[in-house]
Each structure stands twice: as structure tokens, then as C-alpha cells.
């Protein structure tokens, strides 16, 4: 392997710098109340009837 080129060095420096700054552990999110029931938040949506699927071919009226 040949000597490290200037651009390779830049990449390495960039990587190290990024990890120096990126030092937060991300496990420190703020707690939230337990989520118990979606209906506590959405009481006007009926999952059984308010989602409708349909399939239609190019021509209409064929049964």
C-alpha cells in the first residue's frame, strides 16, 4: 500500500472530527406518559369502517 494521500488524510480528519463532536449518547430522551389506548387521542376514527380499499380494472361494469 502506498503513502496516504492528502485527500485520504482529509477523509480521516473529517471522520475523527465528526466523532469528536458527535458524542451524545442518545439514551437520554425525556420520558413520556405511558401510551395506553389510541382512542384516548383519536375518538372520531373507526378503524373498521373508516379505511376502505378498492380494486378497479380498466373497464367498469364487469362482475
Amino acid at each position: 500500500m502506498g503513502p496516504c494521500t492528502s485527500s485520504q488524510n482529509n477523509v480521516k480528519v473529517r471522520y475523527l472530527e465528526s466523532h469528536l463532536v458527535d458524542n451524545a449518547n442518545d439514551f437520554d430522551d425525556e420520558p413520556i406518559p405511558p401510551f395506553l389506548n389510541p382512542k384516548d387521542h383519536i375518538n372520531d376514527f373507526d378503524w373498521d369502517n373508516d379505511i376502505v380499499i378498492d380494486v378497479r380494472p380498466q373497464k367498469k361494469g364487469f362482475l
Binding site: 383519536i42 376514527f45 373508516d50 379505511i51 376502505v52 380499499i53 380494486v55 378497479r56 380494472p57
Partner: peptide
């Protein structure tokens, strides 16, 4: 050829 559409419609909540 047979084009087909598969659709999903959800009711708006106006919430």
C-alpha cells in the same frame, strides 16, 4: 395489457 388501480381511502378527521 390490463391497468388496475388499487386504492385506499381514509376518512378525514377534520381534527
Amino acid at each position: 395489457p390490463l391497468p388496475v388501480s388499487i386504492s385506499i381511502r381514509t376518512k378525514d378527521r377534520n381534527h
